[in-house]
Design a protein around this nucleic acid. Sequence first.
DNA 1: ACGATAAGGATTGTTCAACAATTCTTCAAT
DNA 2: ATTGAAGAATTGTTGAACAATCCTTATCGT
Lengths: 254, 254
Amino acid sequence: MGTTDPASPTRSSGTSRGAALGSDLDTVLDGVLAARRAERTVMSTSADRAARVVREQVVEGHLRSGTRLPEERLAGALGVSRNTLREALSQLVAERILVREPHRGVVVATPEVEDVEDVYRVRRLVETAALARGSHHTPERVAAVAAAVTEGRGAAARGDWDGVASANQHFHRAVVSLAGSPRLDAQMDLLLAEMRLFFHQMGAPERFHRPYLDENGAIADLLAAGERDRSADRLDTYLATAQDQLVAAFRQRA
Amino acid sequence: MGTTDPASPTRSSGTSRGAALGSDLDTVLDGVLAARRAERTVMSTSADRAARVVREQVVEGHLRSGTRLPEERLAGALGVSRNTLREALSQLVAERILVREPHRGVVVATPEVEDVEDVYRVRRLVETAALARGSHHTPERVAAVAAAVTEGRGAAARGDWDGVASANQHFHRAVVSLAGSPRLDAQMDLLLAEMRLFFHQMGAPERFHRPYLDENGAIADLLAAGERDRSADRLDTYLATAQDQLVAAFRQRA
DNA sequence: ACGATAAGGATTGTTCAACAATTCTTCAAT
DNA sequence: ATTGAAGAATTGTTGAACAATCCTTATCGT
């Protein structure tokens, strides 16, 4: 970006090697360094990779709530050492995907009714605020919300209930991203991962999401029309009923 | 130390009814087990303790932004092994207090202007929502907000600027807790820890908080009077100006 | 049979020592 | 002064170990 960058490093020596362009060589080099660092952070350490695999297996439902994760066997399966695995597990415990019971090991979290209620408490606050008061609505972000709706409709049309569920997640993530905050986005990703635990816990009929498709559409329309408060209100009541439904299904199964 | 349970008083708190049935007993025992598990999670593992120590040193300002944390020496200082320390560091990296640069080590995070802006983005959304739309306002929680104000006034009266800063944190944490959500509270604690990094980064004149004491008071009064929307509005503009001030101080020092 | 209990096995929490890979430093050579 | 290569330092990761704790099971007394 075009910032003035007044305190440029003192390295800018008068000797201009080759046909260096007018722009500061230092800034270019800084960019290269940043890029390399970014690349390295992408292909991250082996603990991170292990964490990603386990997380995926959990949210995908292949590791069900309450199953224990014995360190030795799991480490062997993942091809890492037990110490490295423990680093990965710590991370997932911090994300609330796993729970550590001291001296008893790590198990896949089994959400309680209070967890459902709390997650929805946060979602109602954050998502409605992002709709009504988000200060970073841009055409692209609004379009992303609408895109998630059409994605869901397409999936429903071809009976792909898994696709409907996933589109629903995209919708709500797009709503939160209206706030334009990386931190909020990250937090929302955590909440959505927990939501998937809820669904698996309740013997997920993935058709759960079907009724809300039209609601999503209505909200997206209101948003596009600039009716921010009304879209927020609508989302609020919608989330409330969804919560009731989930809680009911939860109680029934407990 | 035999297997004698240290205490099992939960059993008979007024249950004079001799007809204690098996199912009742089961629930009681479940409660006892849950309590023990909770206790154990409190006196946590040594990696957690190490994490707590490092976190404290960072937010307290004894470890300044950008300082590296060599694993071997730090492990020695904390009296834990390098592997255990790495578990602790992973946790703190997840909390954004530290940053890991692959193959280069872990350093105390050095916030940029964008971080300040993002943190305030989240705070403005969440805190105002908690004030205006929080569905769990209770007399105790409202009282906690007022208590933070008087705490701050007391600290200011005796010139304890550190105390003013800390009371200010209590105020904002109390505001968020109006939402009644453990998850939101935890997230807010993370944000407040980051805030302290900001202050240390800018050569913290802790008198930064002094002007906002009266604002806090006004907001608490509006809240107590049931004027939720107005209190939220006031907090919003207040946070906006505070953000501007912080960003300005940041730019000056960079 | 029944419940308490002690022995044995399994898993976690933690440490230690090592090694490859990578980064940082030094220092000589051009 | 820049380049490049040897050497030191640090990280990423492993494997083996050991105490502490939990779980299971066989034993015993009644």
